[in-house]
Structure formats: structure tokens, C-alpha cells
């Protein structure tokens, strides 16, 4: 299956904020920061289903995420920020002190079960 272009928006969620106070060293936190929300139509055109794994790539790096269907605009992806999004983030802050954290141009590619587990 061919890769498709999307705009990825790492964001904060209230659930993630609460989980940080419980701890990050647990499967619940891991699941939150590796779950990407995608539009149902985008899933169809990419040939993937709810719960499938995808490889997301930027010019800086790549990481594996699990897909979750959600009410988000076509072409946009959302994920709570965390260690996997760190791998995709560029280090240049353009003199502001903060790197670009939203609207990353990414390539999304479905991955088979074995690759997802690895």
C-alpha cells in the first residue's frame, strides 16, 4: 500500500495531563502517545482500519503509531505529544526558542502486524 501525505498535529489532551500526574512509566501513557486520530474517509483511501498500525515519517524521523477513527478533518491527523512525536520533530526553532509543533507534513504508510510489534 502506497504512502499518503497528511498534516500531523501533536496536541495536549486533558486525559494525558491527568495521566502525567499518575505516571508516564506505564502502558496507559504509552497507548495515549502512540494513538493517532484519523478521519474515516482517509482510512478507507489509505486501506487501513481502526486499530491498524502505520509508520509516520517526517524529514527528521519516523515512528510507529496505532490508528483510531475520529471526527477530524480530512487530511489532518492528531496525536497527544510524547516520545514518538519527539522523533518526528525538527530541532530548528527559527529564533523563537520553540520548534514547530503543529501542522507537520508527514507521510503515512500502513505497516504489517510484525513490523508494528517490532
Amino acid at each position: 500500500m502506497a504512502a499518503k501525505q497528511f498534516l500531523l498535529n501533536p496536541s495536549r489532551t486533558a486525559k494525558q495531563g491527568a495521566q502525567i500526574n499518575i505516571g508516564k512509566d506505564c502502558p496507559e501513557y504509552e497507548a495515549m502517545v502512540t494513538t493517532v486520530t484519523m478521519n474515516a474517509d482517509d482510512m478507507k483511501s489509505l486501506g487501513v482500519a481502526d486499530g491498524d498500525s502505520v509508520r509516520i515519517r517526517t524529514e527528521f524521523g519516523e515512528a510507529i503509531f496505532r490508528l483510531e477513527v475520529g471526527r477530524v478533518p480530512e487530511g489532518l491527523l492528531f496525536v497527544p505529544y510524547g516520545p514518538p512525536t519527539c522523533k518526528l520533530m525538527g530541532g530548528d526553532t527559527e529564533g523563537t526558542g520553540m520548534p514547530l509543533s503543529k501542522g507537520w507534513e508527514v507521510e503515512v504508510e500502513p505497516v504489517s502486524g510484525d513490523a508494528a510489534a517490532g
Binding site: 508516564k24 502517545v33 527528521f60 510524547g82 519527539c86 522523533k87 520533530m89 525538527g90 530541532g91 520548534p99
Partner: peptide
């Protein structure tokens, strides 16, 4: 370690 860009 969980929020900054990987090079940092």
C-alpha cells in the same frame, strides 16, 4: 526527554 525534538 518526552517533549523535546530528538536531537535535543
Amino acid at each position: 526527554g518526552a517533549t523535546m525534538p530528538q536531537p535535543a
